[in-house]
Design a protein around this nucleic acid. Structure first.
Length: 881
RNA sequence: AGGCCCGUAGCUCAGUUGGUUAGAGCGCUACGUUGACAUCGUAGAGGUCAGCGGUUCAAGUCCGCUCGGGCCUACCA
């Protein structure tokens, strides 16, 4: 076995072999119970970022764990066409060639898109392979492939025919840069500094003027009314009258509306129905018309007047303000900080515009989703998201699902020559409905929001709308792992569509991870360009260390600060595992018949063997429990401490005298190998490569599984191994050893130097120590271990009811040095304080009468221990006294 | 404006249903290469658990308030 731990030397080879042998391929006819996870499909042309690596690690961990538990585990991989994001990338590429998509035409542009997709297709898979992902690639899906496209059309038609999808003209969020509508979720409001312009509007036929306040003077050209609060005494008298729109001269009726806040600005609102959501709603209530003064590219229209037409809206703003100023209508300008919607993708300001779009009424689905959660069929982990989830579903509004893009699912709606719309699965069906020829129909040029197809992902990937074997077996799926930032974009919509189209919640548990943050605490995202490449980390630390780090950082409700030092630490953990195994194998080579045992009887084993098996059983129980609770961090920590602490620091040390033949004990080799086998299996879901590599080298591993650890059973609690008494006894021994080492260090005894040690406790402890004499000597590096009260000239202490003493090797030097005395005095002070506290507690009968007996007894024994230590330290300080 | 989360060691974070002495990793200090591992070992230093008040025999943990930081949702022009 190579002395060097080098993950690169085996990781890729195992991934290849596992795949070749089909271990990850799921079979609905296996007779095992199903377990299914759908990957949140990454952008097909993207690169995996650390968020993906985190989620993939957890999904793989769950999948491997369930596979080992005997489930038919399917982790279905795939990719998303990611409409806007991908189209932008190709458009950028075109731009670098001096071209635009519109010159190219739809058909040729889409050819470019598919070519681009083909080029990067393999990227995601390659990166998931590097991480050791156990996906079933035979079932890989892409949101634009034939099957999923059919599912999208089917869903659209079904929802349309139920009246849940409609087409209409509304004020929508419009990106003048992308030239498409976007949904509410794709708009993020940013707080930006701006101005509040107070503008005077003359009142028709009165000689008076009123003042309105606005943050967007350029939109005044589209004003069609002036509104005030119905109770506002200042303006009530204007009811029924008209104001005159400056610069344009349009007559604007005064309307009273309770939505107007009389406290804000002047208490008067200029109403611009087609360029402001608030005004749009207000205008609808009052039957007011609207005027479009800004176009789809963010420029002023003809309606805005000859001089401004064609100007960008922000340039127009300056001009409007200037002209108002000239005409003496600009009353006041205030600094004003306000919220402005920006595109979540490109960051450009979003323009509210009126346009004809397709909308999905999700209110009914939202109600069903609410009924399913929380505490129902759907569980969010951590459940701190419940309130947010409910709140969002309760206030949900129609979803604008059409996009003016080319890359995506073209909407299955056709228009006949009379402009009537026919929604159907294809042109032939549409033509039949329309009573015409397919050639005479024109398909709606728009595509669907990417999230529409994503919403169908859990079942479209399994063959829906067909009644497939996979769908019957694996659906509903089990767990969804994703970051909380797409809870609404994706999770909520999957739940809603799942309930609507399949009558089932598509998964019973959603595990929400935090977002990966970089060194500066900024969240990593594609658009921000601060993405760290998981590939580099795998190269540097190995996939297992990357996985272990990410899994152990997944604490509920917290973002994940990426910490390279920690990753290096977990690479060192791999090294520890490697070397412990190397040591065990080298020692056991000569031991005849030492093999991994599928079952192991503890009868006849010595205390250290009983102890490590007991610890192993408890660890298996705890890890299983923690995994079931989605506490991957705690599961990892327990595994780490079991292997490094219990196994390496203690058991292997305890095994050395036995393995070397100095103090033989029964079946030590069997136990060591069996513990390693179980440890590897416990660790396998999080560190698949290392554990397979080492497990394969264990003599007798075939008795657990003939081929691979991937399919070996996941260890569980072995109640017969658990032994409280041995754990307590060995635990005491460990503390004793630790205290002796501390005594040595405190009194400046060189690590190599052998000392005489005295130990004396109660008869039972003494008997146990007598049995373990060679071990204790070995671990304390004691020349002689006297099971007797420490004589006065020794340096003394006490632990676990055992009085300890060590005789310093240097002679006669029994005088305490300055340092030693200071340390002991400090320790004494601490002891006195603790004794005072504990005595105080025990002297208070409110405590002794109300606290549980166990806690009271705990305090009593603690007091005894403290007093014993005080006695021993005092004895040390006056040795010959 | 609502809702949520966070504040614990130098750094990044754990701390179940309140219970003896608040933990881990990294970093730091001292010593150490005796044959698994220096990607290591042994022993240490380091915390008024943001602050104030309350409930309780007992509070990092439960409740209220304050301060500080972050996030999400929202049509105040």
């Amino acid at each position: 076995m190579d002395k060097r731990f080098e993950p690169r030397s085996y990781e890729a080879a195992w991934q290849r072999r596992w795949t070749e042998r089909g271990y990850f391929r799921a079979d609905p006819r296996s007779g095992k119970p199903p377990f299914c996870i759908m990957i949140p499909p990454p952008n097909v042309t993207g690169k995996l970022h650390l968020g993906h690596a985190l989620q993939s690690t957890l999904q793989d961990l769950l999948t491997r764990w369930k596979r080992m538990q005997g489930y038919e585990a399917l982790w279905l991989p795939g990719t998303d066409h990611a409409g806007i994001a991908t189209q932008l990338m190709v458009e950028r590429q075109l731009a670098s060639e001096g071209m635009q998509r519109r010159c190219l035409g739809r058909e040729r542009f889409l050819e470019r898109m598919w070519a681009w997709k083909a080029q990067y297709q393999g990227n995601i898979r390659r990166q998931l392979d590097l991480l050791g992902a156990s996906c079933d690639w035979s079932r890989e899906r892409f949101t634009l492939d034939d099957g999923l496209s059919r599912a999208v059309r089917e869903a659209f038609v079904l929802l349309y025919r139920e009246g849940l999808i409609t087409r209409g003209e509304y004020l929508v969020n419009w990106s003048p840069v992308l030239e498409t509508a976007v949904s509410d979720l794709e708009v993020e409001s940013r707080t930006v500094p701006g101005h509040l312009w107070h503008i005077a509007y003359p009142v028709e036929g009165s000689g008076e003027r009123v003042v309105v306040a606005t943050t967007r003077p350029e939109t005044m050209l589209g004003d069609t009314a002036v509104a005030f609060h119905p109770e506002d005494e200042r303006y009530r008298r204007w009811a029924g009258r008209h104001a005159v729109l400056p610069l344009v001269g349009r007559r604007l009726p005064f309307v009273a509306d309770a939505a107007v806040d009389p406290e804000f600005g002047s208490g008067l609102v200029k109403v611009t129905p087609f360029h402001d959501p608030f005004d749009f709603e207000l205008a609808r209530r009052h039957g007011l018309p609207g005027v479009t003064v800004i176009d789809r590219r963010g420029r002023m229209t003809e309606e805005a007047g000859e001089e401004l037409a064609g100007l960008d809206r922000f340039a127009a703003r300056a001009q409007v303000v200037e002209r108002l100023r000239e005409q003496g209508l600009l009353v006041k300008v205030e600094e004003h900080v306000h919220n402005v919607g920006h595109s979540q993708r490109g960051g450009e300001p979003i323009e509210p515009l009126v346009s004809t779009q397709w909308f999905c009424d999700v209110s009914g689905m939202a109600e069903r989703a609410l009924a399913a959660s929380p505490g129902g069929a759907l569980r969010l982990v951590p459940d701190t998201w419940d309130r947010t989830w409910e709140n969002w579903l309760e206030t949900i509004r129609p979803w604008c699902i059409s996009r003016q893009l080319w890359w995506g699912h073209q909407i299955p709606a056709w228009y006949d020559e009379a402009g009537r719309v026919w929604v159907a699965h294809d042109a032939v069906e549409a033509a039949a409905l329309a009573g015409t020829e397919p050639e005479r129909l024109t398909q709606d040029p728009d595509v669907l929001d990417t999230w529409f197809s994503s919403a169908l992902w859990p079942f479209s990937t399994l063959g829906w709308p067909d009644d497939t074997e996979d769908l019957r077996f694996f659906y509903p799926t089990d767990v969804l792992v994703t970051a909380y930032d797409i809870l609404f974009f994706w999770v909520a919509r999957m739940v809603m569509m799942g309930l609507q189209l399949t009558e089932r919640v598509p998964f019973h548990t959603v595990h929400l991870t935090g977002l990966i943050r970089d060194a500066a605490g900024v969240k990593m995202s594609k658009t921000k360009g601060n993405v760290l490449d998981p590939e580099d980390l795998v190269e540097e630390f190995g996939a297992d260390a990357v996985r272990f780090t990410l899994a152990s950082l997944d604490s509920p409700g917290r973002d994940v600060p990426l910490n390279r030092e920690q990753m290096a630490g977990y690479r060192a953990f791999g090294n520890k595992i490697w070397n412990a195994t190397r040591f065990a194998l080298s020692r056991l080579e000569e031991v005849e018949g030492a093999e991994v045992q599928p079952a192991l009887d503890v009868a006849g084993l010595a205390a250290p063997e009983r102890w490590i098996l007991s610890r192993l059983s408890r660890t298996a129980a705890e890890v299983g429990e923690r995994l079931a609770a989605f506490r991957f961090d705690e599961a990892c920590h327990r595994l780490y401490h079991f292997f490094w602490g219990d196994l390496c620091d203690w058991y292997i040390e305890l095994a050395k005298p036995a393995l070397s033949g100095e103090a033989p004990r029964p079946r030590v080799g069997e136990v060591l190998l069996t513990v390693l086998d179980s440890s590897f299996r416990l660790l396998h879901p999080v560190m698949p490569f290392l554990t397979e590599e080492l497990w394969q080298r264990l003599p007798g591993h075939e008795r657990i599984h003939p081929e691979t650890i991937v399919l070996a059973p996941y260890p569980t609690r072995e109640a017969a191994w658990e032994d409280e008494r041995t754990e307590a006894q060995v635990g005491a021994l460990m503390q004793l050893v630790t205290r002796v080492r501390a005594l040595r260090a405190e009194h400046g005894v060189a690590p190599k130097a052998a000392v005489d040690v005295w130990a004396c406790g109660d008869p039972e402890t003494d008997r146990f120590l007598a049995e373990q004499l060679p071990l204790v000597r070995f671990l304390c590096r004691a020349e002689t271990l006297h099971l007797a009260p420490p004589p006065p000239e020794t340096r003394q202490d006490a632990v676990e009811g055992v009085a300890l003493g060590i005789a310093l090797p240097r002679e006669p030097a029994q005088e305490l040095g300055e340092d030693e005395r200071r340390k002991l005095e400090k320790e004494l002070e601490r002891l006195e304080e603790a004794i005072r506290q504990t005595e105080g507690r025990l002297g208070d009968d409110r405590f002794t009468s109300k606290a549980p007996a166990q806690v009271v007894e705990g305090n009593r024994s603690r007091l005894r221990e403290l007093e014993e230590r005080r006695r021993r330290i005092l004895a040390t300080m006056q040795p010959i006294g």
